[in-house]
Nucleic acid binder design. Structure first.
Ligand SMILES: NC(=O)c1ccc[n+]([C@@H]2O[C@H](COP(=O)([O-])OP(=O)(O)OC[C@H]3O[C@@H](n4cnc5c(N)ncnc54)[C@H](O)[C@@H]3O)[C@@H](O)[C@H]2O)c1
Ligand SMILES: NC(=O)c1ccc[n+]([C@@H]2O[C@H](COP(=O)([O-])OP(=O)(O)OC[C@H]3O[C@@H](n4cnc5c(N)ncnc54)[C@H](O)[C@@H]3O)[C@@H](O)[C@H]2O)c1
Lengths: 209, 209
DNA sequence: ATCGCACTGTGAACCACTTCACAATGCACA
DNA sequence: TGTGCATTGTGAAGTGGTTCACAGTGCGAT
């Protein structure tokens, strides 16, 4: 079990490593990963240490070993199975982005309550009705649910996902969702983020330099 | 200058307060805000204290005072002016969501490099060419830029925003962007978040309970 | 063969944020 | 008027994550 932030950064290091691998680069130093990931060399070294990745002072880290080890830490044996609920503006953007992109991250099903959307193929993925959610997610072994429905529907959708055995939820609706112990929820509140950036954009240089 | 996380939560408390205000609720206790925001009562009280919001042990916090004080802390006098760069799948979702929604958060301009998109009105907002970015953002006094272009274009777009005087950037491209001292950047890496949820979904109950 | 050097791996210090714990408050009810 | 009680406001302690700082390493130059 590795720390929260470290897991996020490992995903980033893997992306950078994959990019370098494609260009034929064999080795990478912590300070290079730091510069490309927006971190620090010490942070990178600690993260890689926690993931069990070792390098040599002379050559740095072997890119292929880094990728392999991050795969071993992050990935599920048969790939990460993801379901998306709410094929609206945001949901369609995610479908377009993730479908057919990463081998180890598959959106395997999309659901919506709107009869006008159900049955249609949107961004290459068939949109299924909500009553199919539990059986379909169960039989596909879905690990993660992406919730992109209106705020007042988020809890109902969450409950359905829980019933389907999903144990990780990424929630974009501006609503708190309740889950039992042992289920992991990440809440992304885009409005709050924009307002935060607005606040610090104004304040950065003023007050206590 | 209030702490990072506190600012994000203040935005959430305001949303909850606004909702309650609409329903005619006059007062709210810290534990109610905690339950609705996914925080704890102690955290809420500390946040409100930092923002200069006070309540009474008998009635809790006055909702209208809470909203007014968060407005005073977070908001820019004439509203937060936001520009969006990259009217693709994600950018269009943001336009649809934010346009005409919040009085104090306005997407005032959208830009794209694609000649097929420039000039068209997308989600009710005219899409402008990139050469207009610097003069337009300057004259509108844009505070925040939303970057939703491909990763390899993120730095170029950032540089244009900086030249236009923008001092806060919310970056959705999976690329680190360099900015001078005093400019605030928030980076949202959706892929890394999905992978993190996948990791903890699997690990939650196993290992060290 | 030896030296200098840039880098790794990691204990320890540091820092930011969260939670605990409790005195102070003021309404409800007797 | 007095007693009980749920809640606020906030020092102090706790937690988790980051950065410092340096001993240890092995290549490349001499
Ligand atoms: N789009 C953005 O930029 C943005 C920004 C911040 C937050 N959000 C949040 O993300 C969520 C989705 O936003 P959006 O812009 O895509 O909204 P949207 O209205 O375009 O899409 C919502 C979709 O959910 C479907 N839906 C509604 N109830 C459902 C239910 N019970 N079960 C299944 N599907 C249901 C609707 O049919 C619709 O297709 C909302 O909660 C919104 O507040 C979006
Ligand atoms: N859509 C998602 O779900 C998702 C998820 C994770 C990350 N992202 C990231 O968000 C960004 C946008 O994603 P998207 O799905 O909307 O991509 P997209 O290809 O649909 O849209 C990108 C838009 O940017 C425009 N553009 C390209 N170069 C530009 C430039 N130099 N200046 C101005 N505009 C330019 C394109 O014309 C296009 O309209 C990408 O970096 C992507 O990696 C998106």
């Amino acid at each position: 079990m590795v720390a929260h932030r470290t897991i996020e950064r490992l995903s980033v290091y893997r992306r950078i490593g994959t990019l370098m691998h494609g260009k034929g680069t064999m080795h990478v130093f912590s300070h290079e990963l730091a510069a490309r990931s927006g971190s620090t060399a010490a942070q990178v070294r600690r993260d890689l240490m926690l993931a069990g990745i070792t390098g040599s002072p002379a050559k740095g880290y072997l890119v292929s070993a880094l990728i392999a080890r991050v795969n071993a830490v992050l990935d599920h044996p048969e790939g990460l199975q993801v379901a998306l609920i709410g094929v609206g503006n945001l949901g369609r953007a995610f479908l377009a982005y993730f479908l057919g992109r990463k081998a180890n991250l598959n959106i395997v099903a999309a659901f919506d309550a709107d009869p006008a959307k159900v049955g249609r193929v949107i961004q290459g993925c068939r949109c299924l009705p909500m009553q199919d959610l539990v059986p379909t997610c169960r039989s596909l072994g879905v690990h993660v649910g992406l919730v992109t429905v209106p705020a007042d529907q988020a809890q109902a959708v969450t409950d359905a996902l829980l019933e389907a055995g999903v144990r990780g939820i990424l929630n974009f609706a501006p609503a708190k969702i309740r889950v039992p112990e042992g289920v992991f929820v990440e809440h992304v509140d885009i409005t709050a983020l924009v307002e935060k950036v607005g606040y610090f954009a104004a304040r950065q240089n003023k007050e206590t330099p």
